[in-house]
Design a protein around this nucleic acid. Structure first.
Length: 903
RNA sequence: GGGAGCAUAGCUCAGUUGGUUCAGAGCGUCUGCCUUACAAGCAGAGGGUCGGGGGUUCGACUCCCUCUGCUCCCACCA
């Protein structure tokens, strides 16, 4: 095979991905092996791959590939989400571009457009995941609105309704006036906004007598028993602060705190809504903050959640002055048909013109926006919706997480989870949308309905419920609303294996509970918590054993990646430019669970460079000719032994990292092992002289190492490892590294590894001396070594550092004739025959001595401390004694060198 | 207002039950190299009193308190 000097991913990636797919390498069927299952967090069906997906799916693929290579039956189930609101608004937008309005279409017509859109754009993201190397079982691809998943959703709705957990009711909900639908609390995001606090005058109604206050000055609590009076030529008035003056048309009361001395005088009075002229009562409730504004609150029960509560408590009328699209409704006496924000501008002008605005202050408040429609401010709105009672679910879902039976990585999210479940409110599951699962409730009049999986069942139930035996299907009308998208997603780990349609089927029994879930913490409430709930409700068992939370991908300045900032790299371009393996490394390099990753293209570059390094090491060993008859050199034999031990130790380290989901640590361990230990040391040691063959024993050992390295790295970098593994020796069709087993750690001795590595340190030290003394690497240098040095591996240092004579001595006779450095407890002396500057050498040694003296003093002080010796564990004391001995011996040798130099 | 978390080399981060052979890694920087696998490379070097202060302890980057700065989540002050 012809090998270029650089790795070219384009020659490799498609080829092997197709190979894997053709040989069904990703497919899983239940068998006797231990299952390893991941269900993908389904991306929006019409979405495109972004950095978040790349991070998330790279991690999943690493875990899946590794499990597969550990002999488990790995199954990664892909799929997409119908994303009700997001998709519907995209479709509405596209239709609008074609001049079609949604309201002019029937439900069926609209759904046809939506399906067209889905078929057109759907699955693009799944294709893009293939570019990343994702080893999903594509035969199992699910969609939240396909037949099985839809049937599951409907079945669950009916079941929960029959259990009394789903109810329909008139509630204040979060309303999206653009998408014209209700949203759950979780779908509303609050943003701080620079706004104004308008102080409006609400005059006391003429029928109320305020004359008792006439003799007191205004704005002066000293003279009116704490009351703060407002009075002008038109009479007495209250000052009400509001950020939303346009809602005054819906005011049905003004509220003061009964304990508020400033406003006592308003108790029992009535006031007039400015401009509107409506007379409303002054009510009293402790809800009102005395210190906020003037302590007077306008109450608009139809347009504010708190006002709604007040309205209920005080039996107030509720006037809904907005249409669903947030234009002013016929209910309002003024501004009918105007948009809410236009209305605000106008009413402010009008209030000012009428002298009803006392003042306008700058104010920062929080405004809710739709998560999916971020430009649209949410309007609290009273409407008839469907809700799921959550307490039952929260009670089930909390303990397994808190007791670590279902583990969160990192565990800090347990607290978040706990918090949310503690204060959980009922889940508004109905949406006034068409794209989604239609609520299976069937009405025979405005009020009365039955809930059933099919129309036929509904007819039967309705006959009984209505007492009308002649009721026919045509007499029933299905609820117009669709279900919240998350009401289908929460079933995902169950519904993907059809655990609801065919309870107890072989697949659900085998694959459930799934093993790991990899997702972002921002959907812990939306999705993770609810899957746990549904899992326990329908399977009696957790849906996954571990949840790994990734962080958000941010740019290198720490900003969130967003379209408007334009700081998000094009995922596909990155794949084109750097190759999938390079990108995967780039994503993984600085990923620790739960913390955000600051992405910078240089990381991907590093990944690409690593590919190149691997590639070139392969070129090197494929370029060798082998002489089976040649004896194995001493250095090569030692290197092989060392590398074998180091390989075992590395495998154990990597296993440990993975067991704790420390993926970037695992990656870094392998990166350094490959780059430093394998390439920089091992290959340099065994490398034959140019043009000469390598001996058979070393060559075979090296192939074995390379094979192990490729396998270890494969889960992280699937493409290049497959390409090289295939080139390592003849392979049969269908053979693939991805179905090989991971190498296992054997026995090793840390002590042996360390002794061998003294030779490496020796080589480094000599190279350092060469550099500082300007001695060419081609020129041999002689060394003297003092101390307990591993003589068997000194040949390694000889080769790596181009040493001439090596002598083991008891003392360095002429220290002025060279430079020495320490390797462990040994002194290595490089003979330089007078090439050195005695003074600077002495200074160096003196610095070393000072360092060790300080160190030794610390250790001695510790050992001299009776309380330490008495209290510290024996092992710790022993370590200290060893340190003492080591330092003392080093000092001794340093002082000897110094003394010799002084001569 | 409540809760969680973070502050360690220029940058991004490790540091698991407190023990100065753990003050580390990667990247970047500097110096020298086109050495016959790789300049997307090789070799070598410098760099931090672990945010400030106090405490517990024989001993703290590691535990406690406090201050400062930052991040995130939750919550009905209009």
């Amino acid at each position: 095979m012809e090998l270029s000097a650089k790795y070219d991913p384009r020659q490799v990636e498609d080829k092997w991905y197709r190979y894997w797919e053709e040989h069904k390498c990703f497919h899983s069927e239940p068998d006797e092996r231990e299952p390893y299952t991941i269900v993908i967090p389904p991306p929006n069906v019409t979405g495109v791959l972004h950095m978040g997906h790349m991070l998330n799916n790279t991690i999943q693929d690493v875990l899946v590939r590794r499990a597969r290579m550990q002999g488990k039956n790995a199954c990664w189930v892909p799929g997409t989400d119908h994303a009700s609101i997001a998709t519907e608004s995209k479709v509405v937008k596209r239709l609008a571009e074609q001049g079609i309005r949604k309201r002019d279409l029937s439900r069926e017509e609209f759904l046809k457009h939506a399906w067209d859109w889905t078929h057109e754009h759907g699955g693009i993201i799944l294709k893009q995941l293939r570019r990343l190397g994702a080893s999903c079982d594509w035969d199992r691809t699910g969609f939240t609105m396909d037949e099985v998943r839809s049937a599951s959703v409907i079945k669950v709705f009916v079941d929960l309704y029959n259990k009394g957990l789903i109810y329909r009711g008139l509630r204040m909900v979060n309303w999206d006036p653009k998408a014209l639908t209700a949203l759950s609390n979780e779908e509303v995001i609050y943003r701080e906004e620079a706004s104004h606090l308008y102080n409006l005058k609400y005059y006391v109604a003429p029928e109320c007598d305020c004359s008792e206050w006439d003799s007191y000055p205004v704005n002066d609590p000293e003279h009116a028993g704490g009351n703060v009076l407002h009075r002008d030529e038109k009479g007495y008035y209250a000052v009400v602060a509001t950020t939303r003056p346009e809602t005054i048309m819906g005011d049905t009361a003004m509220c003061i705190n009964p304990k508020d001395p400033k406003n006592r005088w308003l108790s029992g009075k009535k006031v007039i809504v400015p401009l509107v002229g409506r007379v409303i009562p002054v009510i009293e409730d402790r809800y009102v903050e005395i210190e906020f504004g003037t302590g007077c609150l306008k109450v608009t029960p139809a347009h504010d959640t708190n006002d709604y509560m007040l309205g209920k408590t005080h039996n107030l009328e509720s006037i809904d002055i907005f249409n669903p699209d947030a234009t002013v409704s016929e209910q309002s006496p003024l501004y009918v048909g105007m948009d809410r924000f236009a209305c605000r501008k106008q009413i402010v002008k009008d209030l000012q013109a009428a002298g009803l605005m006392e003042k306008v202050e700058d104010y920062t408040n929080k405004v809710g926006y739709s998560e999916r429609n971020p430009d649209t401010a949410i309007e609290p709105r009273l409407s008839l919706q469907w809700f799921l009672k959550m307490k039952h679910f929260a009670d089930m879902a909390l303990p397994p997480v808190m007791e670590d039976r279902l583990k969160f990585y990192p565990p800090k999210y347990k607290a978040t989870y706990h918090n949310w479940l503690d204060g959980i409110q009922d889940w508004c599951i109905s949406r006034q949308l068409w794209w989604g699962h239609r609520i299976p409730a069937y009405y025979w009049n405005e009020e009365e309905f039955v809930v059933a999986e099919t129309l036929q069942e509904a007819v039967e139930l309705a006959r009984k419920a209505s007492g009308n035996a002649a009721l026919k299907a045509e007499d029933l009308h299905q609820d117009e609303d669709a279900l919240d998208t998350w009401f289908s997603s929460w079933l995902w780990p169950v519904s993907l294996f059809d655990g609801l349609g065919k309870p107890g089927n072989e697949e659900i029994k085998y694959y459930y509970p799934t093993t790991d879930l990899v997702t972002a913490p921002d959907i812990i409430f939306f999705w993770v918590a609810r899957m746990i709930m549904a899992g326990y409700e329908y399977m009696g068992e957790m849906p996954f054993k571990n949840v790994y939370f990734t962080g958000l991908v941010r740019d290198k300045l720490g900003r969130k990646m967003s379209k408007s900032l334009g700081n998000s790299p094009d995922a596909l371009k990155l794949l084109d430019d750097y190759g999938a393996d390079g990108v995967r490394i780039g994503m993984l390099l600085c990923t620790s669970a739960g913390s955000d990753i600051l992405f910078d293209e240089s990381q991907v570059e590093q990944g690409r460079n690593f590919c190149n390094k691997i590639w070139n090491s392969f070129r090197l060993l494929k370029g060798w000719s082998v002489d089976e008859a040649a004896p194995q050199g001493e250095a090569a034999a030692a290197a092989v032994k060392w590398f074998d031990a180091k390989l075992s130790r590395t495998i154990a380290t990597v296993d440990d990292h993975f067991s704790k989901f420390r993926i970037s640590d695992a990656l870094m361990t392998l990166y350094k092992f490959f780059w430093d230990d394998f390439c920089a040391w091992y290959l340099e040691i065994i490398k034959p002289e140019y043009g000469k063959p390598i001996d058979g024993a070393t060559y075979r050992a090296t192939l074995r190492f390379f094979d192990a390295l490729l396998k270890l790295i494969h889960p992280i970098m699937p493409f290049i490892t497959e390409e090289l593994w295939q080139g390592l020796e003849e392979r049969k069709d269908g053979e693939t590294i991805m179905l090989e087993l991971q190498p296992k750690a054997g026995e090793w001795s840390d002590e042996e590894i360390e002794r061998f590595e003294m030779a490496l340190q020796t080589a480094s030290g000599v190279r350092g001396v060469r550099q500082s003394k300007n001695i060419s690497p081609r020129e041999t240098v002689d060394v003297l070594i003092k101390g307990d040095y591993p003589k068997e591996s000194v040949c390694v240092a000889v080769k790596l550092a181009n040493l001439g004579q090596v002598q083991f001595v008891d003392a360095i006779e002429n220290p002025e004739a060279g430079v020495s450095f320490l390797v462990g407890r040994c002194e290595v002396f490089v003979s330089l025959s007078g090439m050195i500057d005695v003074a600077s050498e002495m200074a160096k040694i003196e610095a070393e001595i000072a360092r060790y003296e300080k160190f030794l003093a610390g250790v001695k002080a510790k050992l001299g401390n009776e309380r330490f010796v008495a209290n510290a564990p024996e092992a710790v004391v022993a370590v200290e004694r060893k340190k003492e001995a080591d330092a003392a011996s080093k000092l001794e040798s340093l002082r000897a060198s110094l003394a010799a130099l002084k001569k």
